[in-house]
């Protein structure tokens, strides 16, 4: 008989999937604006531009809304978890084993911190692009480079994330946690022993 333990709250899962859907839509519309081959194929640039900008605004608004009406205390705990790295986390990052991990391993913590920073920078640079088209005071020669560079970095992070979450046999069980909330207790014990110890205590 398999035993399941709860890894992600409803607020956390909602945040993850709102972020994922928003990012993918923005990536798709953004690539149409960015790649000449797609720009020519699709056309309708003014429409795609509006879709891209307003869905970006919507994306960040929904994330903020979920955080506000969801389990705020839980999210504060999540932020603390992501912030704190103990000696085992540093060993884990250096590839040394054993390095028992908590609910998030060190790589996942870095991923969350980077994703949050990228989201913030996407918002700032996107707003500057939009405002700069209307007022020279908001125009910087490097805004478009920042926005495009972020896309490449975020895409690289996403590819690694998808590989671990969907393809790699040892880790792909995590996908169950972020969709249904719970994961196999034994799997959790193998991959996140410190979290399990706290959980059982």
């Amino acid at each position: 008989m398999r035993r399941y333990v709860r890894r992600f709250s409803r607020t956390e899962r909602l945040l993850h999937w709102a972020n994922a859907v928003g990012f993918l839509f923005l990536l798709a519309t953004g690539l149409i604006l960015y790649l000449p081959s797609l720009a020519v194929l699709v056309g309708r640039r003014p429409l795609i531009q509006d879709l891209h900008f307003w869905s970006g605004v919507g994306w960040v608004s929904v994330l903020v809304l979920i955080a506000l009406v969801g389990d705020r205390r839980g999210l504060k705990r999540l932020a603390c978890e992501v912030d704190r790295f103990d000696r085992d986390d540093l060993r884990w990052l250096l590839g040394r084993r054993p390095a028992p991990q908590g609910r998030f391993n060190a790589g996942q913590k870095v991923n969350i911190a980077l994703t949050a920073a990228f989201t913030f920078l996407f918002l700032v640079s996107g707003l500057l692009l939009w405002l700069g088209e209307r007022d020279t005071r908001f125009r910087f020669a490097s805004t478009v480079l920042l926005h495009d560079g972020l896309m490449y970095l975020a895409l690289a992070l996403l590819v690694g994330h998808l590989y671990l979450a969907v393809i790699n046999p040892a880790t792909r069980h995590a996908l169950r946690g972020i969709t249904l909330g719970s994961v196999d207790a034994e799997w959790a014990h193998r991959h996140h022993p410190k979290w399990r110890q706290e959980y059982d205590a």
Binding site: D83, F85, L90, L114, A117, L121, V124, T143, L146
Partner: peptide
């Protein structure tokens, strides 16, 4: 524990914002 998560976040944001210059 070391406060690394916020360090990663803040350093990335700072790098991104200053890259405007």
């Amino acid at each position: 524990p070391l406060r690394i998560g916020r360090g990663v976040f803040l350093a990335t944001v700072a790098g991104g914002i200053t890259s405007l210059l």
